[in-house]
């Protein structure tokens, strides 16, 4: 899965200005990518499984906070879902649907190995 910056997709909100232009949801990240969380929560947008505020708090409580380092460690077989993410020094599994609510910036491949894997897919 290749990540292309799509700023038009960013939900509009009061703190839109503070989000870097290259920020994109964690749900679009591929295995091996590393980044930093810049915003948690859907900023008012609706989510199909949970109340957005509830989702935001659950993500915060399990460690997805602004500033946390995230790295995609593993992906599921079907539709590359769910994903296993390293959040700072712990590991969390979640579905891409929930990962939508986490905006991440400064993507970079974790290693050359990851780049090679990215090319293969």
């Amino acid at each position: 899965m290749h990540i292309s910056p799509r700023p038009a997709d960013l939900p509009a909100g009061p703190d839109h200005e503070t989000v870097p232009a290259d920020a994109r949801p964690l749900s679009r990240a591929a295995k091996g990518e590393v980044g930093r969380v810049v915003r948690v929560g859907l900023n008012g947008a609706l989510h199909d499984s949970l109340d957005p505020d509830e989702l935001e708090r659950r993500l915060l409580e399990i460690g997805f906070v602004e500033g946390a380092r995230v790295e995609i460690l593993h992906e599921g077989l079907f539709g590359r879902d769910p994903i296993a993410v390293k959040v700072d020094d712990m590991r969390v599994a979640l579905r891409r649907r929930e990962a939508e609510a986490i905006l991440v910036t400064r993507w970079q491949p974790a290693s050359l190995h990851a780049v090679a894997e990215d090319r293969r897919s």
């Binding site: 199909d48 969390v92 979640l94 929930e98």
Partner: peptide, 10 residues
Amino acid sequence: TVEPFLMELP
């Protein structure tokens, strides 16, 4: 009421 799948991998 789709419960989110959100769990720590210890």
